[in-house]
Simulated assay, not measured.
Amino acid sequence: MITSTPIGEWTWELTADSGEIRPTRAAQVVAAIWNELAVRELALPGGKADVRVMNRNDPRDVHLAAEDLSMGTTPLAPRSALARAVARAEAFDGDLITVIRVECPGLWLEPGFEYRAEKLFAIHLEVWSGSLLTATLETYSDAWLTMDTRNREQPEVYAANAPRLAAALQAVSALLGTAPVPGDENHYAAPSETGFRDLRDEGPAYDDSWGTFEGLDRASLLQSRIPRSEDEYEQITEHSVRYFTIRRDGRTLGFLWASVGDAAAGYVPRTAAGDDAFDAGAAWLLALREAHGQGLAPLTALDWLAKHPARPGIGVIVEDTPRAASSLDALEELSGRY
């Protein structure tokens, strides 16, 4: 399963032995970590990077905010977006915090198949006053776990993916000259220095943690993108649903659904599609609000949206007629698994 919040993380700390850790050095560390992930196809071209420089004593005093920088095959290639932003960051002096964050598309493996997630990992690096550097690696997939986040054992998936993560963590530790500090156990998993602890014996912290928490996290991310309103359909249902697939440029972004038995309708983002799934979903939710404002029943709203498509930038409906899912949970399973 792919999540919208981290399943686990690992942090390395470095202090300056002599001189100052400048933004260029920080970016070189990020690029080196990215390269170690890329060797194992845990990072692929097409990701996004942010660079921020702010006053340490007043983080609201932002000197530089460069966002959504496109990442190619060589993160710090001359004249690349990231290289230009780092050059701008070099112009600032003082008691500053420099933050570089890179979201890494990558591949997770299943028997006979490989799948791409637009945010399989994220590299988050901070430099404090030029003297302390912390690098954090986050993952958003449960492919490294002996049990997935819905409490199902997955020996073949684990065997195909866990060694890739362990090798990457070892390589980054060798690169930085220090062992990682695993993040705290969370409701999904328990990180260790080599990946994750095996929870088969003691059991996970929560039953079906993905089903319990991911829906709430997704809803929060979607609702943060649109104005609050009382004029909308219910967001959950115990009934079966009908749905349309939303696709753009050959990639599935999510699923527009309606209940067959009550006044519920909504949009389920395909988490592996990354932020695009949520940005498109926000627009489709606004379209559903328009249908609700016209007094349309949920299934009628699906038909209305198919006949009055939204702007192409948010994706298009693929099917001529809606598909059936036995439950909203089944549709969410589809959207989070692949």
Rank of each mutant, 00 (worst) to 15 (best):
A143Y: 15
G295I: 01
E118W: 11
G183I: 07
P163V: 06
L256G: 00
L137R: 11
E90R: 03
T24S: 11
G274D: 08
V268C: 02
T73E: 15
V29H: 07
L176C: 10
R311S: 11
L96G: 09
L120Y: 11
G8A: 03
G112A: 03
Y338L: 05
F244G: 01
D148L: 12
L109R: 04
L82W: 15
L109D: 07
P227L: 06
S173P: 11
N186A: 03
L42S: 09
T194W: 00
R60C: 12
Y188K: 01
E333W: 15
W34C: 09
F255S: 04
A77F: 10
Y158I: 07
W210F: 08
E90D: 04
I97Q: 10
A174F: 15
V86I: 04
A272C: 14
A49G: 01
A85M: 05
R270I: 05
S259N: 07
T212P: 07
L125M: 08
D276Y: 00
G215R: 03
G274P: 09
V102C: 08
F244K: 10
L302V: 14
L76S: 13
M54L: 05
Y115F: 14
D142H: 14
A171S: 14
E234L: 03
Q294P: 05
R311N: 09
L82M: 15
R311Y: 02
A273W: 13
Y140T: 14
G47F: 05
G46R: 01
A27S: 12
G281C: 05
L107D: 05
A167K: 07
P269C: 02
R197N: 13
W210T: 11
R56M: 12
D184N: 11
R52N: 12
P78W: 01
A265K: 00
A122Y: 07
S259F: 01
A265F: 02
R251M: 08
P163F: 01
G293S: 05
I33Q: 08
A31Y: 09
G293L: 04
A324N: 04
